[in-house]
Design a protein around this nucleic acid. Sequence first.
DNA 1: CTCACGATCAGCT
DNA 2: GCTGATCGTGAGG
Length: 251
Amino acid sequence: MTPARSGEWRPLPRRFYQRPVVELAAALIGQVLVRRRGRLLLAGRIVETEAYGGEGLDPSAHSFRGSTPRCAVMFGPAGHAYVYTTHQGRCCLNVTAEGDRRGKAVLIRALEPLSGLETMRALRLAALDEGPTRARLLAGRADHELAAGPGRLCLGLAIDRELNGVDLTGARSPLWIAGPGRSGGGSRPSIRWTPRVGLNPASASCAWSWRALDVASAAVSPPRGARAGGSKLPRPRACPRPQHRTAKNIP
DNA sequence: CTCACGATCAGCT
DNA sequence: GCTGATCGTGAGG
């Protein structure tokens, strides 16, 4: 936001990412994702993440069946960006974990915008078709909705496949993750665990509560299609026996 | 080459 | 709360 605050946004070191992936998903809550675009900094506080396990361990992970051209970055060192495209030209951002080259990563699902809000709004709008609803969207898009969702935050922060593989710890990186700085207030966020979004409810991995979210944030992404603006926290998708992580759960 | 499948989103009921 | 759009990716023939 302010130059003084942006000066506090230094990249977290490699060792921050070198830990079990579920632990990293929790540790990322409250940190600040920063995107440098020319002289402009776009940034938001991370409020929602999901852990994805490794090859042969987590059927929901792209790395489950081993390295492919798309997910090769997951098999690289920790602290790099894995950006993949989903349909409708949208992207999702993951950060690699552990560095054991077994394909573990954390999906960043939602941010609370901190810096560059007008640019985020413009980038989001540019991705929509021109039409009669455009003005209404412009007026109605609340700040906390700008990056509430994995595809939305990539649009708003101009994150696309060109950033796939970038080192998040690099001093000159166009993308990095920083500590909360003074604005963090010193108190650790309160984390709630739920099953991950979009899984087949019948799948065994649906029982693993590997989605971490900041209970205090209004910017967490709804599981699917729910109207924004409501104050209710998202309800986890119906899954058999949701449970918190256990030693057995952690790949 | 062809086919099936989503780690989604916006709009409407 | 539900539906349709729409296309990159990877597996298989």
